[in-house]
Design a binder for these strands. Structure first.
Lengths: 332, 332
DNA sequence: TTCTTTATTGGAACCGGTTCCTTAATCAGC
DNA sequence: GCTGATTAAGGAACCGGTTCCAATAAAGAA
């Protein structure tokens, strides 16, 4: 592979002149022609590392994600990647396998790699996170979680949870199960539940809400939902993710419960597959790709030293489909 | 941020000694202690670029993928990332949005970034690909596609297609529809179809197979499947991906066709959600994560100059579930 | 015609590491 | 006590770019 020195020698000029040519300094038309020709012929491409060494930064944005096999993550990454490409950055992905220690480790490793900025799709923000973020001298953007000391982009899970809770309560459901995940994931495990709880609590009258917990896995959700139908026999099950809802629908099917006649089910996320379910699933659509775009734009600005809002909310909307039925009192 | 020179000065030794300490050269116990202390205090971490500049390579493996919102891709990436981490590499992801030009571009860009190796999840291998792969002087591993001149890891789509075709034919189906995608994706669009076609052709007797085409999108698949039911009214629909099968099931539901009593449906991929469908979907499971592991191991070996088989097949197996029924002649 | 000014260009230093070479010091063997 | 081997450490060169500074030449001003 050719270096800038080779090009310079072949073109009969100095390294600095070639560098100037490449970076738009003052070079005569004549020399420009010569250098252009040589570069054309040799297919020369500057070594990005040598450049970064001097510039002390790269055009790589690191993203740290808890898992790759998640609709939310891959959609968000798509958005990030798309926008980043437009802005002439590359995306380096670090998967942590939902391991908190590795999340911290990765922050330091990315810093060592001298990435220009870091987008952190965290599940939780601990003191160790804050310490790491402070120590490395690199802009960090939090996506999906929020902390006052860090630039954050959140999905407003609480309001969304409230919206779906309100919707279900307004349809006359009195016995509502909430199928969620552990509180280690603040956005999904805490915020969504909290918003939902708030909504149903406003219908104090005679609504009974019960909270159940499972993992992010569909099959675990199916199993838990199966038990839940026996224990509680709710008229509606509000699930904290679409995958859980898919599991719940499976369980209902196995218990010979008809959706939505016997039990209404809702999801959370807006995965494409929810439209294909039978019946199609009422859910909250979160605009992950759009959020990814925003995240990329924000981190790019931060890298350039420009300012962005400390906290940004992404959009969501309710998608009303077939899996929810109206319940009037006399039917109960 | 401190440099090695700072550390050396503080510890009262030469840069080279610190470097030797870090890389396990001969350093006296006494100096080791001194340097260790200083590094501890300052939180010094070597600049990865300066290291790469000298070493002329990085510990980053670039992966080029057509799309992120695909089960196959994200599973494969998971596998790659997991194994790569064990081997002390990082994964740089470049998404091409199914744009062939960008696939080529990305090969060059990654080369400029001096990644140690490239894993290419291509949809097709053109001359431009081969040219790019040759020009950059970096090991490349093809995943999901195969070419004689490039190290390849393939999913043996043809054999798998044959297996599912055989299975359906043996269950007595006589009118079989194959719902596939365009031939621009060689593995999915060509190989799977070819294997299937071979299998049914061996049941020359009275099997009628018809081939239909759609995109990778579930909703497009649902629409196409809807038409197909009207045009052809098959007793079985073999789909080239699980997403297409999900679309087909939706279409069947809308047409009031019962699965599998009226029509059998099969998928391809083994996505988790197929187990949750009602009825659950018979499909071919491809071991994407495992393939990712293998891909990572192979590229690491290639980077180190070790040899690996030019062509490796990943495993697959048939998962027999509820969506396929036996057809005996008198029922038709 | 001579002095400035301006446009190009070359040379050298630097970014932060690694590595080769040399020297100094310690130690064993005779 | 002297010689050769071995270990520890420093110094300098190098990786492949960028950038600052000085030098030269050409052009414009006086």
């Amino acid at each position: 592979m050719k270096t800038i020195a080779d090009i310079a020698k072949i073109a009969g000029v100095a390294k600095s002149t070639v560098s100037r040519y490449l970076n738009g300094g003052s070079v005569s038309e004549e020399t420009k022609k010569k250098i252009e020709l040589v570069i054309e012929e040799t297919g020369y491409a500057p070594n990005a590392f040598a450049q970064s060494l001097k510039a002390k930064k790269t055009n790589i944005i690191g993203t740290i994600i808890p898992r790759l096999d998640s609709y939310a993550t891959s959609r968000t990454l798509m958005g990030i990647d798309e926008r980043l490409r437009e802005l002439n950055y590359h995306m380096l992905v670090s998967n942590t396998g939902q391991d908190l220690t590795r999340e911290i480790e990765n922050i330091y490793t990315l810093a060592k790699q001298k990435v220009a900025g870091i987008i952190l799709l965290a599940t939780e923000v601990t003191d160790a996170h804050l310490k790491a973020i402070q120590e490395i001298d690199i802009p960090v953007l939090l996506v999906g979680q929020q902390h006052d000391n860090v630039y954050s982009l959140v999905h407003d899970d609480e309001t969304a949870g409230y919206a779906i809770g309100k919707y279900i309560a307004q349809r006359g459901h009195k016995k509502i199960a909430f199928l969620g995940v552990g509180e280690y994931d603040v956005a999904v495990g805490v915020k969504r539940k909290k918003g939902f709880a708030q909504a149903v609590s406003e219908h104090t009258a005679d609504v009974e809400a019960r909270f159940f917990e499972t993992t992010f896995s569909m099959s675990d959700a199916a199993e838990r939902a199966g038990q839940l139908f026996d224990e509680f026999s709710p008229s509606a099950v509000v699930c904290a993710t679409d995958n859980l809802a898919i599991g719940a629908m499976k369980a209902a099917y196995q218990k010979k419960l008809r959706v939505p006649m016997d039990v209404s089910i809702t999801g959370f996320g807006g995965y494409e597959v929810t439209a294909m379910m039978n019946p199609s699933l009422t859910t909250v659509r979160i605009h992950f790709t759009e959020a990814g775009h925003t995240a990329a734009s924000h981190i790019a600005k931060l890298v350039k030293g420009e300012d962005v809002p400390k906290l940004t909310y992404s959009r969501f909307d309710l998608i009303l489909r077939e899996s929810v039925d109206i319940r009037t009192n006399h039917l109960l």
